[in-house]
């Protein structure tokens, strides 16, 4: 704590008045972000609990329901998201090491991957909507089905919907970071926003890592 009293390097313009040093500010911000990520996990967690219990109650219905999903689409999206996580982490590393071009291109690649993810999702959704595989009372699929199959789609839409919403928010945040990066705001002295946006983006990826087998690969 002794170093926190005075900063040997003067004040960085991004340093807020109530922090003694940039380091203190950074660790507060990072802790805040991790706490926020913890809340996100518990938010999604509720859906996972609901899914687990309803899956146990209607196992055949969930297996039958998942046959309507296209595994290749899900797999492609998994790969796209994993790759975007990679480009994101490279962007963070670039900002830490003052590689401005790499930072900008990393962010652009990440946003592009998010875009691809949403486009694939759009095709999947429109396919479901066309077949009437909608949640709750809008379910109107007429083909052969198991009792309770509609519930699988309730969960499919709630879980991928909430996740998709997070992808959208992520795209907005990353676009904002990209603009700031192009304005040369980040350096090895100050890269917290890139780092935090990266953490958020990896969490979105992390959740998809679980959603993919749960929804697409039910056995």
């Amino acid at each position: 704590m002794s170093q926190t009293l005075e900063s040997a390097h003067g004040h960085h313009p991004a340093q807020q008045h109530h922090f003694a040093t940039m380091e203190q500010q950074f660790s507060a911000a990072k802790l805040g972000m991790w706490l926020f990520l913890a809340t996100e996990i518990l938010l999604f967690g509720g859906l996972f609990v609901g899914y687990g219990i309803m899956h146990n109650r209607h196992p055949e219905a969930f297996v039958a329901g998942h046959h309507h999903l296209q595994r290749p689409m899900g797999a492609i999206n998994t790969i796209v998201l994993l790759f975007s996580s990679f480009t994101m982490v490279v962007a963070v590393w670039a900002s830490q090491t003052n590689r401005k071009k790499l930072l900008i291109w990393g962010l652009i690649a990440t946003i592009a991957c998010a875009g691809i993810f949403m486009v694939v999702k759009y095709f999947e959704y429109s396919h479901k909507i066309h077949d009437g595989l909608l949640p709750g009372k809008f379910y109107s699929y007429k083909g052969p089905q198991v009792e309770g199959e509609f519930m699988f789609f309730s969960f499919y839409f709630m879980m991928t919907g909430l996740h998709g919403f997070h992808v959208l928010i992520g795209m907005i945040v990353l676009a904002w970071i990209l603009i700031r990066a192009m304005r040369n705001e980040f350096s090895d002295q100050y890269y917290a926003p890139v780092d935090l946006a990266g953490l958020y983006w990896h969490l979105v990826d992390l959740i998809w890592i679980y959603l993919f087998p749960l929804l697409y690969l039910v056995s």
Binding site: L35, I41, L42, G45, F48
Partner: peptide, 13 residues
């Protein structure tokens, strides 16, 4: 922080 969110989730489930 991160692990405790998982622990609480595990309790819940």
């Amino acid at each position: 922080v991160f692990l405790s969110s998982l622990v609480f989730l595990a309790f819940f489930i």
